[in-house]
Each structure stands twice: as structure tokens, then as C-alpha cells.
Computed example of a mutant assay.
Amino acid sequence: MMEMIIAIILGIVEGLTEFLPVSSTGHLILTGYWLGFTGERAKTFEIVIQLGSILAVVVMYRKRFVDLLSPNKQQGGLSLAHLILGMIPAVVAGFLLHGLIKTYLFSPYTVVIGLVIGGVLMIVADLKQRPPTSSSLDDLTLRQAFSIGLFQCLALWPGFSRSGATISGGVLLGTNHKTAAEFSFILAVPMMVAASGYDLLKSYQYLTVSDIPLFATGFLSAFFVALLAIVTFIKFIERVRLIPFAIYRFVLALFVWMVLF
């Protein structure tokens, strides 16, 4: 029973933080650490519930994905080329550095560092924002998509936040906050399916039939909470931008440092 409660808690944490610029990986590592849910089985569980959050994006942006995959798609606007260019930098970097990242960077200490540095980037993005040249997803250029992909590489450091890196990058590159956030969400789908699928193939031996209720509970919790989080965040980011999230990251990092170190 206790493990089911842990699954619900971690599912809620994942759903709330996956698409906010606060680092879902960092929150999962810290929450799992405090709940005593660690080890290879816990890492596999985290992979599965991340797929629940990704399913929420597919549901929310289903019309956009259908359009992207349609053979009759009209010229112009967001295309598969934007997603491919946005994926390339992090895919290459992740493939080359995967072993080093898993071995050396998944700890509360490295998460604290990522929280702080990512927060600084978010503040810089808000303060240095220039007049947007892209006010919707269909205004996004291929060059912007690739450059946002370069920023996404920063998220390979746990605690940095994939959405924090990509939204900050988008704002610095001339998109408004909403466009940067929506591209971050859509770009997350192929990125996280690929990354989670790769991790799951390497970790499937830690799964047993008896784990199905636990994993299903976490998956569904993450899915439903992520649906709510996406809708709320899109409305929120247009009004408050990134600095409040950066302040939250600094407070969390300080709290973690005081408690753990």
C-alpha cells in the first residue's frame, strides 16, 4: 500500500513539473530520495511515468500532430523539419554522453547546481528579451528551431530543466513566451519517447508482472496531472513569464542544500 501512495505522489510530481521550467528530473530525484524510493527499479518507474506526461501533450495537441503527419499538409507553418532540427543537437549529445550523465550527474548535489544555473538563464532570457519575431508556432523559422535545439542540450544536466532551457532559448531567439512554451511541449514528444524508449530497453529487466499496478498508477497520475498543468501553464506564462519560476528554483536549491548538505 505504501508503494502505491509513493507511485501517486511521484506521478503528481512528474505531471506537475514535466512541462514547467523547474526540472521534473530534479524533482523526481529529490522526491524519490526523500521517500526512500531509489535504485534501478525506481529509475525504470520514472521512465514509465514520464511517458504518461508525454501522452498528455499528444492529447492536448492532437490536431497539431495530425497536421504534422498528414501527407496533404500545406506548405508553410510548423513542420516535421522544425522538429527534426530541434531534436538533432540533443539526440547527438545525449547519445555521446548518455553513460557519463547516468553515472555522474544523477544526484541531489548535481540537481542543486542545475537548478541554480537554469534559473540564472531564465532571468537572463526575461531581461534580455527582444521584440518577438515569432508570435505563433507557424511563425517559427527553421533556424530558430535548430537554435532552440542547441539550448535543449543544456537539459542533459539533471536539474537544468528541458522546458526551462528551450523556453529561455526561444525567448532569447525572438519568440514570445507562449510560442516558446508550445514548441517546447511539442518538441518534448519525439525527444522523450526516444529517450524513454532507449532507457526502457536498457532497464526492462527490472520490470516484473507484479510491478504493473504500481507503474500503471504512476503513469495515470502523471497523465491526468500533466493535462491540467499544460493548460494552466500556457495561460500563466503569458502573464508572469520566467522570473517567478527562477526564484522558485533558487528557493528550492537553497532548501535542498540546507537539508541534505
Results as ranks from 00 to 15, higher is better:
residue 39 G to L: 03
residue 53 S to E: 03
residue 13 V to P: 10
residue 28 L to P: 00
residue 30 L to P: 12
residue 158 P to L: 07
residue 62 R to C: 07
residue 155 A to M: 05
residue 18 E to K: 12
residue 258 M to V: 12
residue 31 T to M: 15
residue 152 Q to P: 02
residue 226 A to Q: 02
residue 43 K to G: 08
residue 171 V to H: 11
residue 42 A to F: 03
residue 254 L to G: 12
residue 256 V to K: 07
residue 138 D to Y: 04
residue 236 F to A: 13
residue 260 L to V: 06
residue 107 S to D: 01
residue 170 G to D: 05
residue 137 L to I: 01
residue 184 S to M: 02
residue 226 A to W: 01
residue 153 C to M: 12
residue 145 A to E: 05
residue 259 V to K: 14
residue 231 V to L: 14
residue 48 V to C: 04
residue 232 T to S: 15
residue 242 L to F: 01
residue 259 V to M: 12
residue 82 H to Y: 02
residue 113 I to A: 14
residue 223 F to P: 03
residue 180 A to K: 11
residue 173 L to P: 06
residue 38 T to D: 11
residue 165 A to D: 05
residue 116 V to N: 02
residue 43 K to W: 08
residue 180 A to H: 10
residue 33 Y to I: 01
residue 14 E to F: 12
residue 141 T to Q: 02
residue 12 I to M: 13
residue 148 I to K: 09
residue 201 L to Y: 14
residue 25 T to W: 11
residue 160 F to T: 06
residue 35 L to H: 13
residue 58 V to Q: 06
residue 207 L to M: 14
residue 19 F to M: 10
residue 102 K to E: 14
residue 24 S to F: 08
residue 24 S to K: 12
residue 100 L to E: 10
residue 96 L to G: 07
residue 176 N to K: 10
residue 216 A to W: 08
residue 246 A to C: 01
residue 118 G to H: 01
residue 5 I to S: 11
residue 39 G to M: 06
residue 58 V to W: 09
residue 150 L to E: 04
residue 220 L to F: 13
residue 52 G to H: 03
residue 238 E to Q: 15
residue 49 I to A: 03
residue 154 L to T: 01
residue 250 F to K: 07
residue 107 S to R: 05
residue 232 T to R: 13
residue 82 H to C: 04
residue 22 V to Y: 12
residue 117 I to A: 08
residue 247 I to G: 04
residue 62 R to I: 06
residue 167 I to Q: 07
residue 62 R to T: 03
residue 96 L to I: 06
residue 33 Y to T: 14
residue 67 D to M: 13
residue 91 V to H: 04
residue 213 P to Y: 10
residue 195 A to K: 12
residue 67 D to G: 12
residue 123 I to R: 04
residue 45 F to P: 01
residue 86 G to I: 02
residue 119 G to W: 00
residue 61 Y to D: 07
residue 127 L to G: 03
residue 84 I to P: 09
residue 128 K to A: 11
residue 179 T to N: 11
residue 245 F to Y: 02
residue 52 G to C: 02
residue 142 L to P: 02
residue 205 Q to I: 07
residue 148 I to L: 07
residue 152 Q to N: 04
residue 190 P to C: 10
residue 7 A to S: 14
residue 188 A to N: 09
residue 202 K to S: 13
residue 17 T to V: 09
residue 261 F to G: 13
residue 151 F to M: 05
residue 184 S to Q: 10
residue 94 G to I: 00
residue 72 N to Y: 14
residue 161 S to T: 00
residue 204 Y to D: 05
residue 166 T to S: 13
residue 193 V to H: 13
residue 240 V to F: 10
residue 178 K to P: 03
residue 197 G to C: 06
residue 134 S to G: 03
residue 113 I to N: 07
residue 200 L to N: 09
residue 39 G to A: 06
residue 194 A to Y: 09
residue 208 T to A: 14
residue 154 L to Q: 08
residue 159 G to T: 02
residue 76 G to F: 00
residue 138 D to H: 11
residue 214 L to P: 06
residue 243 I to P: 00
residue 62 R to D: 09
residue 250 F to I: 02
residue 3 E to I: 13
residue 169 G to H: 13
